[in-house]
Amino acid sequence: MRPDASVTRRRTGVVVNYVLVLLVLLFHYLGKTLGWNAVWVGAEIAAFLGTIATFLALHMRTHLWTLVHAKTENLDERELQVTNTALGRAYAVFTVLCLSILLVLTLTETRGSGPLGVLLPVSLIYLAHTLPSSVIAWTQRRV
């Protein structure tokens, strides 16, 4: 994806990227609960590779990752405003999502993160790191 990609393309990239993360979790869950076989392993690897590919296309090639992770002294006033707003929105979304997951785990009396194991916190850390640039990809007409 080029840095001047349209909002529609960037939004599609955001949706595809997070759907692939969910698919990794789903295939892992199915593998753990129904028993691992070549289908679940293959599907999980494919979803994982797809996640990496869309991450590189959406966050790295568009320079959104650089924008969000740049030092403040290297950004101009508009970029600072954009990144601050994105970080604020990402923080709100992430908090609501974490609380919802905790609530579900509590209501289902699941210990830890259940069959997902360490994959759930890993996915949440991935989400925490990519949400600000996803917010910019979603909201800004031009990056």
Partner: peptide, 22 residues
């Protein structure tokens, strides 16, 4: 002016209000 060239575009399209300093 010490800004990103994209910011100049935003200013020209009047999609961003500059600070007094800028």
């Amino acid at each position: 002016t010490g800004v990103n060239f994209q910011t100049v575009g935003y200013l020209e399209r009047e999609e961003y209000n500059p600070s007094l300093d800028l």
